[in-house]
């Protein structure tokens, strides 16, 4: 268990900046998720911490001690790769015990530790099997057991569940989440799956183009994104361009009183689940352009002045494409962010 600090990490490949001044502190026992699209630099951060790639600049500290120049095998940081990388020529037991064996730990202790982890990760009966004889979920658990066996300061997970089918993924997420809490192990998870990040982590750091653009608790980053880029990670949302002056937000749908002291040209973000369908013909009139059935809700896309508005509906209020309905859009509760330079919104 350890506290981990990243200070001003920089890394370029072929002139392209992969990491641009990354600074982040993960507290002892904390579960941090790095959320970002592919190419955002999240995996590079993990490899920098593990020592499997070199940084151009920056300092990494574990428990206030710099580890930037410590070789990979002495960092006590274990990475679980998305490809798992189990040793194909070793049994489950040998795989789990590998790290301890390399440290020349006594055989009886290795055996004890391996048995403990085999129990903990429900691998009983598979100890003597080879990786190719295991199912996807079992291989996953072996990879995690192997990582935990060395009792690392920090556990790094690089999209470990991305190759599992959805039900297995959910159960593995729960397992790892519980295990992390039980062992109190400082953990950094890299993922592009927002649900995974939100449900598992204590805090989420959102990355874009090699920069951390927001760090916060899951609720915070979901409900109060600081920019449109962050907001877009969390699915279809509505973005209204407008301007703020004296606590009033003016957009193409009218002027609204808002509890904010911000001023200037801004964008208001309103999540689809905040919009309700108005039965008393008040609010904003839209024409339904398309509908998507998602099991728990219907997602509608309404058209207004050639712009899309996303909202949800329950089954008893089913609407068809072409229907005109009124929507209550709670402009007073929206989140105000800087306007994006690249895109125009409603």
């Amino acid at each position: 268990m350890a506290k981990i600090q990243l200070e001003g990490l920089h890394k370029s490949y072929d002139g392209v900046k992969i990491l641009n001044n990354i600074s982040l502190t993960v507290e002892e026992g904390e579960f941090m998720a790095l959320l970002g699209t592919s190419g955002s630099g999240k995996t590079t951060i993990l490899h920098a911490i593990a020592g499997t790639n070199e940084l151009d600049d920056g300092i990494i500290k574990i428990n206030n001690q710099e580890i930037t120049n410590i070789p990979v095998n002495k960092r006590h940081v274990v990475l679980v790769d998305q490809n798992l990388l189990l040793f194909p020529h070793m049994t489950v037991k040998a795989n789990i015990g590998f790290g301890l064996r390399m440290q020349k730990v006594e055989r009886s202790l290795i055996k004890k530790k391996a048995e403990e982890l085999i129990d903990l990760l429900a691998l009983k009966g598979h100890e003597n099997k080879y990786p190719h004889q295991l199912s996807g979920g079992q291989m996953q658990r072996v990879a995690i057991a192997r990582a935990l066996a060395t009792e690392p300061y920090v556990l790094l997970l690089d999209e470990p569940f991305s190759k599992l089918d959805i039900s297995l993924r959910n159960s593995m997420q729960k397992l790892v989440s519980n295990l992390q809490k039980k062992l109190g192990m400082t953990t950094i998870l890299v993922t592009h799956d927002k649900d995974e990040a939100l449900s598992m982590a204590d805090r989420v750091a959102i990355l874009s183009h090699g920069k951390i653009i927001q760090v916060g608790e899951p609720y915070d980053v979901y409900e109060h994104p600081k920019s449109i880029v962050v907001s877009r990670y969390f699915g279809d949302r509505n973005y209204f361009d407008g301007s703020m002056l004296d606590g009033k937000f003016t957009c193409s749908h009218g002027v609204f009183l808002v509890d904010s002291s911000k001023e200037g040209l801004l964008t208001m973000i309103i999540r689809p689940e905040e919009i309700t369908i108005s039965l008393n013909r008040k609010g904003v009139l839209v024409t339904i352009e398309s509908t998507f059935y998602k099991g728990d809700v219907y997602t509608y896309v309404g058209k207004k002045n050639n712009n899309d508005i996303f909202f949800y509906g329950r089954e008893q209020e089913r609407y068809k494409v072409g229907d005109e309905i009124w929507l209550n859009i709670p402009f007073k509760q929206g989140v105000l962010v800087e306007r994006s330079k690249h895109e125009k919104n409603i």
């Binding site: 593990a50 990979v72 095998n73 040793f87």
Partner: peptide, 19 residues
């Protein structure tokens, strides 16, 4: 990457080669 994984788990260079 499998060699790197062994290193990450604490193996020295000769151990990676040998094991």
């Amino acid at each position: 990457s499998i060699e790197l994984q062994a290193q990450v788990l604490g193996a020295k260079r000769w151990q990676v080669f040998w094991y």
